[in-house]
Design a protein around this nucleic acid. Sequence first.
RNA 1: GGAGAGAUGGCCGAGUUGGUCGAAGGCGCACGCCUGGAAAGUGUGUAUACCUCACAAGGGUAUCGUGGGUUCGAAUCCCACUCUCUCCGCCA
Length: 423
Amino acid sequence: MLTLKQINENKEDVIARLSIKNFEGKDLIEEVIHLDTQRKTIQRKLDSLLAEQKALSKEIGNLFKQGKTDEANEAKQKVSDLKEDSKELATEMDNTEKSISSILLKIPNLPHASVPKGKTADDNVEVKSGGTIPSLPEDAKPHWELAKNLNLIDFELGVKITGSGFPVYKGKGAKLQRALINFFLEENIAAGYSEMMPPLMVNEDSAYGTGQLPDKDGQMYHVQTDNFYLIPTAEVPLTNVFRGVILNASDFPVKLTGYTPCFRREAGSYGKDVRGLNRLHQFDKVEIVQIEHPSKSYDTLDEMVAHVEGILQKLELPYRILRLCGGDISFTSALTYDFEVFSTAQEKWLEVSSVSNFESFQANRLMLRYREEGEKRNQLAHTLNGSSLALPRILAALIENNQDETGIVIPKALQPFCGFDRI
RNA sequence: GGAGAGAUGGCCGAGUUGGUCGAAGGCGCACGCCUGGAAAGUGUGUAUACCUCACAAGGGUAUCGUGGGUUCGAAUCCCACUCUCUCCGCCA
């Protein structure tokens, strides 16, 4: 969430930038500033009342020791009276603070200056593309047919075991999954990321920490008996590693990668968007996360984009990179680049990665700070993350684009990881 | 799941007949002295948030797992919850 300092010091700018995200924030901003002023007034009063009580209470101890019982009892009464007042103020303070934070939770992150205006995905700006879209034979098939014919994925079996959106990978299909996971992890490790295997369920604090709650409640699977959430992305556990942590400026950049399955309820999705591997309730993804110094986070974002692009090039897939417009960018992000690969048989672009800079938005909720050498005051760090990469749509594009008369050709970079060069 | 013990500052650890305890002591860390240099020794400092304020100094408030209660006053007493450890049970 935004800090009160950000809001107080740049009110007009905050409102203007929120409007890029199509968020009408004027009223909320005004209100939160007002409440904050109120809070300060209350705290001043409350603190001085408490200070008086504290001093008197100490005095009472002394008086009793000296045997001045009458004076002590007199002071007791006085403190009791003061306490009445401070109790009221404390309640007021509490309510005001609650109102403030409930408003702050509703305000999205400020978009970066380079975020284009726009309402929908059509307004996203293509910043780069690469690879070659292959020309496929007349009878080219979409991935769900290929996967079935070649016995790589059994969607019906997944329905039987669990439900739609939970595919079963079989034989070479399963091995291809493992190969992709290893390939991605090795690429990330080679780029300086440390691997971590985090829990697949997180507690409520963690879900709040990265902003999934309260914004995306209902999109996550919730294990109610234990109040755990199944992770929708490894971003949640990996970033929460740093919840409440104070780093040294010299610790930057912190680079983590991790493979996890991801679980999403995807309520409301239907039709061709969910066909085959296009949208699943459980899918595999390798994630990259960085914690960075505020002055370097945009360079780091560029570096992460270049890194993901390099992987797509090794996979020889046709891709494009989009800068998301205000209407399509997420609640928590300041700037996001989406990667899409072209699925030739479906003739459409599929999102396979989303790389974002959250600036201090997540860090504020996480209380993730750093200490500058020689400075006393702690600052909020910047957090970034990206998929590197999400498996299902990569797999979809891979088998569609590389199909020939008798099967599927495996790209060179992947062959050492799967141990075969075609299916 | 059953029985018991415990949760204190970066770490270890005192404090639980309630009072001057944000908290002894040690370690670690930072800076200084000492030294040719280092070690040892020695001195000083070393939590977080908010308020006041210039995001200075100084001052104030809160925080000893979390939330509530008793009391003039709680790390210390009471209640609930969470977590950790030990033993038993179960188990990949």
